[in-house]
Nucleic acid binder design. Sequence first.
DNA 1: CGTGCCCCCTGTCAGC
DNA 2: TGCTGACAGGGGGCAC
Length: 276
Amino acid sequence: MPELPEAETIARGLRDPVTGATVDRVEVVHADVLDREAGDFSARLRGAVFESVGRRGKNLVLRLGDSRRMVVNLGMSGRLLLRGPGASGAPPTHPAVYFHLEGGRGSLVYHDVRRFGHLSLHSASEYATWSASLGPEPLGPEFTAAALQRGLQSSTTPLRSWLLDQRRVAGVGNIYANEAAFLARIDPRARTHTLDADAARRLHRAIRRVLREAIDARGTTLRDYRTAQGWKGEYAAKLRVYGRAGEPCPRCAEPIVREVLSNRSIFFCSRCQPAP
DNA sequence: CGTGCCCCCTGTCAGC
DNA sequence: TGCTGACAGGGGGCAC
């Protein structure tokens, strides 16, 4: 579910409440989301301090002591929720892991209905290897139009599939891949090596624009996604094509088309995004 | 190696 | 109502 804007929003929401907090106790409800046996995972976190909260692509990255990190991939339905010490409000419906914090700071809950998410612990070198396996941050300085064009030239896969490959660019998922292709006026089925320099420039701008807009709106809630505070993101109302099959194209009023590509939906305007 | 398909899991919704 | 099938923001594994 969550893509870069959702992960960024969660990271921002966790930063103040969690930074400096010490893990008192880990309570594992569903060990299948962990990268190791539950007792080992819990023992390694007990007494650890969350030194910082960041993000790499769609993943949350919480720094622990000794340069260790906990990486949280939220999968389709994962949430990282803050729960106050008073435990007011309804309890979470699908908790997988609780991180109970010391000093009346409440707890951090990893919540995941489908349990496609994963929590993993990395040493400094393991983290470096993992991070290096991901593509550049699309909002960072390494992601240039020229670098994007080179990457597109090196592959024959359809654009939407290329954008979902985290080794190419880190953080774009199905919603923002479709939105970016629309803004760039490129057919999401187009083979990437057929795209010229101007298309690459338009796509570069479109990716950055849609991700920034979505961060400003605190992400897109279709169903499961929530911020760390449990709020919905507001970007769903601003989506131009995703989930809008049959509705008029915001640019030309032609009905938006839904098709299936590699078992996942694509949405596009056949007039504004002509087949190559 | 690159590419594409299946599957992991649970919940929801449309159609009959 | 209740059943069935399709579909959902991701990504690892495997066959070609």
